[in-house]
């Protein structure tokens, strides 16, 4: 294993460069670009991520870690998956949105009752939405406050649930009284 990392190696984690100018591994997203994505798309302030480091394992799979570690490092997991950057439109993970989506101030679609239950089952549904198309945070009110349910893809008047199969659950619609 060489210390100088110039390409993605599937079995190891490499720390994201601070900015695009610091990049040594081809196509690797920078920390700045990741923070900018969450800020621009969801209004999540960069300060939320101040105490975390960001890592890539495999092409375009970004992880968030609460501490720091030598880079590269060969381990099975380093923190939590947070973002996929391989496609043109970056996609936040279900775990990232459930953990950090509460800080979002835009592109949050509030659904409740049966719509929230359908989303948790992984179903697509027709819904009106005046905002941007693309990845949205689906949220509902539970335990007295708004809480993110997961990531939805809004296109052509339809909200597509991207809740992973292993997390989908058939739940009772919560009363909205």
């Amino acid at each position: 294993m060489s210390d100088a990392e110039t390409e993605n190696v599937g079995q190891q984690f490499g720390r994201l460069p601070a900015t695009d100018a610091d990049r040594e591994v081809e196509d690797r997203a920078s920390r700045e670009a990741v923070l900018d994505f969450f800020d621009r798309r969801f209004g999540i302030e960069p300060a939320v991520f101040e105490d975390f480091t960001f890592w890539e394992k495999g092409k375009g799979k970004i992880w968030i870690f609460a501490d720091d570690a030598p880079s590269p490092i060969r381990v099975e997991g380093l923190g939590m998956t947070v973002l996929r950057t391989r496609q043109e439109h970056w996609k936040p993970t279900q775990s990232a949105i459930q953990r950090f989506g509460g800080h979002a101030t835009k592109n949050v679609i509030e659904i409740d009752g049966e719509a929230a239950a359908a989303f948790a089952r992984g179903e697509d549904q027709d819904l009106d939405w005046d905002g941007d198309w693309g990845y949205l945070i689906a949220a509902h009110e539970v335990g007295g406050e708004r809480e993110p349910i997961g990531v939805g893809l809004y296109v052509y008047g339809e909200l597509r649930s991207t809740v992973p199969k292993g997390n989908q659950e058939s739940l009772s619609p919560l009363s909205t009284d």
């Binding site: 870690f65 381990v75 939590m80 998956t81 775990s95």
Partner: peptide, 23 residues
């Protein structure tokens, strides 16, 4: 992931001769 844990490093080693050399 489900619980939103970000401070966990997962390793696959034999605990009897666990190595810290990568840390």
């Amino acid at each position: 992931e489900r619980l939103g844990v970000t401070n966990l490093v997962v390793t696959k080693q034999d605990g009897r001769n666990f190595s810290l050399k990568d840390f």
